[in-house]
Write a protein that binds this DNA or RNA. Structure first.
Lengths: 167, 167
DNA sequence: TATTGTTATACTCTATAACTATA
DNA sequence: TATAGTTATAGAGTATAACAATA
């Protein structure tokens, strides 16, 4: 186990991520919150999803995701086709307009990050991404105590994109 | 400049930090939000601060900080003594009760992080902390465009605690 | 005049709970 | 009975703007 001071410092830096995200959101166009942008990106990367799956990827409650999805559908960026396998669900998919929107968002975001992180090399960025992915994996699911940790299933749906190797 | 896909993935992982922080906040005692805990930690680490300085360290507006500080003072965890150098300001300082509270919070947080990140070694944690510190540094202050970036002063008050070396 | 801090207000994001429809 | 999703509501957390006191 690491030193307590190391954990404290990690906590402080995690808190600062909030202001970074708010700053990044400033460059997004109208109708595109951070949540909208993330949802579009996930649908662009992972293809068709159901609401629950998207909620899990976003790391927020289904109720939050439901309203977000309504927002995106109202703007014509996604469509919701019936799920033939389960009539309670619908399949979420980017429309061509949504894909164009996503491309624009990606451009803006990449441009802003390149500007803000001009002194970072590719390796730095990938390393941070990988570590954040591992961090998230550690917080998946509800709290399992140290007692039942080994009995737990390996937590499927959220497999990080970056392999998350230690080094 | 990194690949656009790398930036996109970084964005997604930054978004996930929110749910990690919410999960961590669940173990905090009543009256202690993430903001309260962070403010106590900063006052514990950096000693006396004025409201503006604390706001800058927290990365939020002074109005937000003002209410947070009132909350902490109401609970007797900090006191606000007059600043002899500037009668508009007050000096914020942990009380003994605040220090005890902070110790308890640190214990809980370290315990929870140790549990969640049981497969992390000290080096992993320090690396993530260092990278987040650099990330934050890149987003300091208002947006400076690439045109006036060099004319900008070096942004004093927020020197990251971790040296933020590239490796 | 400019700066430090406070307060009022509104906006965004989030979870909880009650509900509907389907499995 | 259990699950997927929707909606109503409430609670954090945040910024903007108007203001007071002081520099």
């Amino acid at each position: 186990m690491a030193q307590k001071a190391d954990y404290e410092e990690l906590m402080r830096q995690l808190g600062a991520v909030g202001s970074v995200r708010r700053e990044l959101a400033r460059i997004l166009p109208d109708g595109c919150s951070n949540g909208s942008a993330t949802a579009l990106a996930l649908l662009g990367r992972d293809g068709d999803l159901r609401l629950g799956g998207l909620a899990e990827l976003l790391g927020v409650d289904m109720s939050v995701t439901s309203r977000l999805v309504t927002h995106l559908a109202d703007r014509g960026w996604i469509d919701r086709s019936p799920d033939p396998a389960d009539r309670r669900s619908r399949i979420l998919r980017l429309t061509p307009e949504g894909r164009a929107r996503l491309a624009e968002l990606s451009d803006r975001t990449a441009q802003e990050l390149a500007r803000r992180l001009s002194d970072w090399n590719d390796e730095d960025i990938r390393r941070l991404t990988s570590l954040l992915s591992r961090l998230r994996a550690g917080f998946d699911g509800p709290q399992r105590t140290e007692h039942d940790a080994r009995a737990e299933p390996p937590a499927t749906a959220l497999s990080p994109c970056t392999p998350a190797v230690t080094q």
